[in-house]
């Protein structure tokens, strides 16, 4: 295990084997020839991720965000089979719930299907239906651990399951919210399949250090996404209550 910094009593190491990953993003992919091993980027010639592997009656309910999340999850599942899955998004279907709130404010009407699809576990639920999976599915929202929250959940799930899938997905917030939060200006989704550390494959080591020092303005939770696409193998991110370090080791 190679942690970037010494482990203190306030530090929590999380170590995994990275079995597979998959990314879709709406912006053009960087021209870098090297990306992380054991994974794939999906083509983004159109505004939406390709979900043609689903029947039309299942595709029709998928928003651009849901298409991205379901596409990366589908490809990881193709590569590694069915497994418990953790879906994570800070703000989820923000376009849908703003539309519902606006409708309520204007004429009181709410679209039943939009309502059913904007609940936070809707995308995970749709993916489990598409996959006919009976595995455990979790949907987490943002919190003080931000982007790193699913890793904590994965460490717990791996006590009982041989591998777990994590799926992150975000989209630009509606314009009226953008003054309050600086998020990535694109729609993207990342899926990772993790197993216990020490198995065959790249080793992903994370270290959480508790801290009282508030996050600085340079903290960027999506930094890991860009690192994968540029084959950068280590980094760190300071959040509200913790400083996270991560490192990818492979031969």
């Amino acid at each position: 295990m190679k942690h970037p910094e010494p482990v203190s009593s306030a530090a929590c190491p999380l170590d995994f084997t990275l079995k597979h990953w998959c990314i879709w993003q709406s912006q053009p992919l960087p021209a870098a020839v090297e990306i992380w091993p054991a994974g794939q980027t999906l083509p983004n010639q159109t505004d939406n991720a390709d979900v043609s592997f689903l029947p039309m009656m299942q595709r029709r309910r998928l928003s651009p965000l849901a298409r991205a999340a379901c596409a990366v999850a589908w490809h990881c599942r193709l590569a590694r089979g069915d497994m418990p899955t953790v879906f994570f998004s800070c703000h989820g279907e923000s376009q849908y719930y703003l539309e519902i709130l606006s409708g309520l404010a204007s004429d009181g009407s709410v679209s039943p299907s939009r309502f059913s699809l904007c609940v936070h576990n809707a995308i995970g639920g749709l993916h489990s239906l598409h996959s006919e999976s009976s595995q455990a599915y979790l949907s987490l929202a943002g919190g003080s651990e931000g982007f790193f929250t699913p890793f904590l959940e994965a460490a717990g799930l791996l006590l009982e399951a041989p591998q777990v899938m994590l799926v992150w997905y975000e989209q630009p917030l509606p314009e009226c919210y953008q003054a309050y939060l600086a998020l990535s200006g694109q729609t993207w989704a990342l899926a990772m399949v993790l197993s216990k550390a020490g198995q065959h494959g790249p080793q992903l080591n994370l270290l959480r250090e508790a801290t009282d020092i508030p996050a600085n303005s340079d903290s960027n939770e999506a930094d890991l996404l860009q690192a994968i696409l540029n084959n950068r193998r280590h980094g760190s991110c300071r959040l509200e209550r913790a400083h996270w370090h991560w490192n990818l080791d492979y031969a």
């Binding site: 009656m57 009407s109 709410v110 679209s111 039943p112 299907s113 059913s116």
Partner: peptide, 17 residues
């Protein structure tokens, strides 16, 4: 056509509107 119960609700809202 393969519509389901949520579609029925959606159709009802659309007809009303």
């Amino acid at each position: 056509l393969g519509l389901d119960s949520i579609d029925a609700l959606e159709l009802g809202v659309a007809l009303k509107k």
